[in-house]
Amino acid sequence: MRALVLKAFGGPENFELTTVPDPQVQPGTVVIKVAATSVNQLDIKIRQGLPIAPEPPVILGSDVAGVVEAVGSGVVGLSEGDAVYGCAGGVKGSAGALAEYMLADARLLARKPAKATMREAAALPLVSITAWDALTVTRLRAEDHALIHGGVGGVGHIAVQLAKIIGAKASTTVISEDAGALAKSLGADDTAVFVSEAVEEYVARLTGGAGFDVVVDTVGGNNLQASFKAARVSGHVVTTNARTTQDLSLMHGKALSLSAVFMMLPLLTGAGRERHGQFLQDLSRWVDAGRVRPIIDPHRFTLASAPDAHRLLESGTGYGKIVVDVAPDLH
């Protein structure tokens, strides 16, 4: 099969389009004929050699949408020809989706939303599972007011929509008024343009100074200090990036909780994979009901031009999720 192989950790020039043996189906797995994959920030870090990266030469790409080509023994609920989606590889221990075929643990997959295109389905899994992990660990409730940083970013724009499904009030930080309008079209109740409004100002304007019950920090790092400021006393901050060293005195003085989300753990450890498949079933229902939709960048990429998809994401000029069409005829 054709595959985009990462030859060594480093820049996107290290990808090479080549031919490799087709994957063979194993017990508990399916072989997916890949229609599309999407590029996540994590893919960039893995390409650069994050500790959870698989050893090159290797096929990257965690998100996948496609059609089941072969079903391994012991797999229930999936059949040949089913259109599926999931976040199923591209980390240590499993090959990714930048190839014509991908071997995937069936527990990580669900039937794709009927009303979503393959492109839309490929955009959803990693960011949606991350957003769901974040809202779940904070036990967000309908009576809560959540602040979601980056309301049109990958994780942020899904977190806004999932917070609304829970019934919570969802405010979000955005980089511009235009982005704010887009976030509101996804259901955000309020927005704050973080480049022109200080944390104290939007906390006062949106919460009367009390602070947010839950803060979803999709930026992390030093932005955590802004999140600590934005949270109410005894509130909960959750982040996708807790890899830095931080002064925790503000956090302690407000008796905050801080949770790290790391949605790849089930792929790396093998434990808890069925939770991902089950969540994606729920997500399909919500997508089909029009309650969740991904924002997708209009640029089109193929397997051959996928390195440019990485470059676009790294440039920061992309818009929403960046999708690679591996087999456009399957769409």
Partner: peptide, 18 residues
């Protein structure tokens, strides 16, 4: 009250409360 590396929490998806 101090300054601490959060990295050990990160890869374990763990939580911390003051």
């Amino acid at each position: 009250w101090g300054t601490h590396s959060l990295a050990p929490l990160s890869f374990k998806a763990a939580s911390y409360s003051g």
